[in-house]
């Protein structure tokens, strides 16, 4: 991993020196080893840049603010992150001319919650060795298979294609497992409405309305969120029901429908471990089934199916028919 980080830093340095960009948007050390945090680096501070198993954060959303500033910023994008940036560019939220996007390879990111669940306590540091993750803890060394610790989203990795980056850094990494990302959604669809309601009520009742999902989501990039706008009338509605969290999350899922790239950040940052990405995946699955495969951010020219119309579109009754089935 160190070798790859060095390669990234070396290329970043070259780009800064060539004048392609004036600063780098990457990951800086966090409070703990498992929470590296987005940071902006000048050439002199590049040695502080982190790129390891825990640098999961999607940096695309930070480009909104960064691209408004003077000069060009070099942003490091993992393959899945690049779709988020491309989608934001498509929505005119990021000034693309102020961005230099460097696609960097990824072998899947780790989930500290999974490590804790497997008994890792008092962890002080980690290292990776031959497909294993070794945690140094207060109580000694714990070794776990890397595959068992992968983030949910990495278990259904969409591959190593990038969308709309300026260049990519070539580096050989082992393949990731490929699972059907709609498996869980399909299982929920099989349930009765009552069962599904119970499932979501159980999950969403854990919500503490910390807004982490909204704040991290690259698709949730409104100048002012409807939930923060008393004029919208939405905020008050969400508060007037005993089950306000469901309204918040369902409205949020609707708002990002057709624009969500399935980057999975919402579930990753949720402190209550709510599988929020399933709501978005349900929309993606429906869109794919009703309008043909669509990946937000993949094609800058493609009209998103939900704000497009073609005579071949299914009739509104399709919804009813699916409801009955």
């Amino acid at each position: 991993m160190r070798e790859l980080t060095n390669a990234i830093c070396a290329r970043a340095k070259e780009l800064l020196q060539s004048g392609a960009a004036g600063r780098v948007l990457g990951w800086a050390p966090g409070e703990f080893f498992y929470d590296p945090t987005p940071g902006v680096f000048s050439e002199g501070r590049l040695n502080e840049l982190v790129y390891d198993g825990f640098t999961a954060a999607n940096l695309s959303k930070y480009c909104i603010a960064e691209s408004q500033k003077e000069g060009k910023v070099l942003v490091l994008l993992k393959p899945c992150d690049s779709y988020s940036l491309a989608q934001l560019v498509k929505e005119h939220r990021v000034k693309r001319e102020n961005i230099y996007a460097l696609g960097i390879p990824c072998e899947g990111k780790l989930d500290m919650r999974k490590a804790r669940a497997k008994g890792v306590e008092g962890a002080l540091s980690f290292r990776e060795e031959d497909g294993q993750v070794v945690f140094e803890t207060l109580y000694g060394e714990v070794r776990l298979a890397r595959e068992e610790l992968l983030l949910e989203r990495c278990l259904c990795c969409r591959g190593r294609e990038y969308a709309g980056v300026d260049e990519t850094l070539e580096y050989a990494l082992p393949e990731l497992p490929k699972r059907d990302r709609f498996q869980k959604v399909a299982a929920l669809e099989e349930q009765t409405a009552q069962e599904r309601y119970a499932f979501w009520r159980g999950e969403l009742s854990k919500c503490i309305r910390c807004n982490a999902c909204r704040n991290v989501c690259p698709a949730c990039s409104c100048v002012q969120c409807v939930f923060d706008n008393p004029q919208s009338g939405v905020a008050a509605k969400a508060n007037s029901t005993e089950f306000e969290e469901s309204l918040f999350h369902i409205i949020r899922a609707w708002h990002v429908a057709g624009r969500c790239t399935d980057c999975g950040e919402c579930s990753r940052v949720c402190p209550q471990s709510i599988p929020l990405h399933l709501l978005n995946r349900k929309f993606i699955k429906d869109v794919n089934e009703l309008y043909g495969e669509y990946q937000a951010g993949a094609d800058p020219a493609a009209r998103p199916p939900l704000v497009n119309y073609t005579p071949e579109d299914p009739e509104p009754s399709a919804v009813l028919e699916r409801g009955r089935a």
Partner: peptide, 21 residues
Amino acid sequence: PLLCNGCSSCEKVCPYGAITY
């Protein structure tokens, strides 16, 4: 204008071409 993201969604759905940016 203070709430507008400039995302062009409205421009795309307008059947009359009434919206510009």
